[in-house]
């Protein structure tokens, strides 16, 4: 009798873990993915597929966990693979290549070789500062090592956080690996200047940054689009953002989506990728995720136009170079800053 009770309990508990119905598309993504229910409903109505969103933490963790089980995925589509992670994911054979018909509306320089993954949005990782606490923001990265900025900067851990890694890459781009003053010298000076390292972007931005949360650090690694987000979410409403973007040390990140190799629902996965490139979805990208759409000819909302702009010269590092050196850079960064 008791044995039966246990069996029933087990069945109940794991019923939910059983076979997914084929008319569901599982989208594995990071915690900051956001889209309105109306858009998702429209997708369901149009294609007959329901979207089930599975969140796995920060983008880097989501991608790494997926790579550890590549070929035997827990979802059908992954979204949030960014520039810093793309070549690692492609190298691990994470994706089933797919060329969406919608891709023709995306500038060709954003396309991925052999269409392994599909670009969805882009944004710049930039230092943000709190305009109320800091009237004189640094103009170049090197300024951050001066005593005037001691104890002011908070950075998400680049080994865990994707914007953290982007900022690290920006510094590597800026200072280089050789010469009198390398990126490691810069980070050594930052450490001496009491830089705060926290786990992920959310902790840095909402936890330690004075401009958005309860923190006391007026400079944070975030996105160029963070100030308009502050305006949109302000309560009571405000006209202009109280935080600003520092243009030095920005890093351009493109976010990609891909069909996970081994998916049980390839048709649904492809439909979802098409949908993410559609005009309706792309139109919603700025105000729901605070990044820029990749699709040409999409109008930006007013709040974006007044509170941010796309930095003129963001750092760009070849994805191949990132892939070749990422582990070494991270290991060296850990040794320079954490140990």
């Amino acid at each position: 009798m008791r044995r039966i009770a246990i069996l029933v309990a087990l069945t109940l508990v794991f019923a939910a873990c059983g076979e997914e119905t084929p008319d569901t598309v599982r989208l594995l993504t990071h915690d900051f993915f956001a889209i309105s229910d109306e858009l998702l409903d429209a997708f369901s109505a149009e294609t007959g597929f329901d979207v089930q969103i599975v969140r796995g933490g920060d983008a880097a963790i989501v991608v790494n966990q997926s790579i550890l089980t590549a070929g035997n995925p827990v979802a059908d589509v992954i979204f949030g693979v960014d520039t810093t992670l793309l070549s690692r994911a492609i190298g691990a054979d994470l994706f089933d290549p797919y060329r969406s018909p919608q891709l023709e509306f995306v500038p060709p320089e954003l396309h991925v070789a052999r269409d392994a993954a599909t670009p969805i949005d882009l944004g710049d990782v930039c230092l943000n500062y709190d305009k109320e606490l800091l009237t004189d923001p640094p103009s170049v990265l090197r300024d951050l090592t001066s005593s005037a900025y001691a104890g002011l900067l908070v950075v998400p851990d680049p080994t865990i956080s994707s914007p953290g890694l982007a900022f690290l890459l920006a510094t590597i781009h800026e200072f280089g690996e050789t010469g009198d003053y390398t990126w490691r010298d810069f980070w050594g000076d930052l450490r001496a200047n009491d830089v705060q390292i926290v786990g992920d972007w959310g902790t840095a931005y909402y936890g330690s940054f004075s401009g958005a949360g309860g923190g006391d650090r007026p400079i944070v690694v975030s996105y160029a689009s963070s100030p308009p987000a502050e305006v949109l979410f302000a309560d009571p409403p405000i006209d202009r953002a109280t935080t600003g973007v520092i243009e030095a040390g920005c890093f351009r990140q493109v976010e990609y989506a891909g069909v996970l190799r081994g998916t049980e629902n390839p048709a649904g996965a492809r439909a979802l990728i098409d949908f993410m490139l559609s005009a309706a979805f792309q139109q919603a990208v700025p105000t729901s995720m605070f990044v820029f759409p990749v699709r040409s000819g999409v109008d930006l909302p007013e709040v974006f136009v007044t509170n941010t702009r796309i930095p003129a010269e963001p750092a760009v590092i070849d994805p191949e170079a990132i892939d070749d050196n990422r582990e070494r850079w991270l290991a060296e960064w850990v040794e320079t800053v954490l140990r």
Binding site: L68, I197, G199, E327, L330
Partner: peptide, 23 residues
């Protein structure tokens, strides 16, 4: 986190975050 790590934490960091499986 983030500075202090035991071997156990470092294994996790290397395997799941930095993706340096041999280390």
């Amino acid at each position: 986190a983030p500075r202090l790590a035991t071997i156990e934490v470092e294994i996790y960091r290397d395997a799941a975050l930095i993706f340096d499986l041999p280390t």
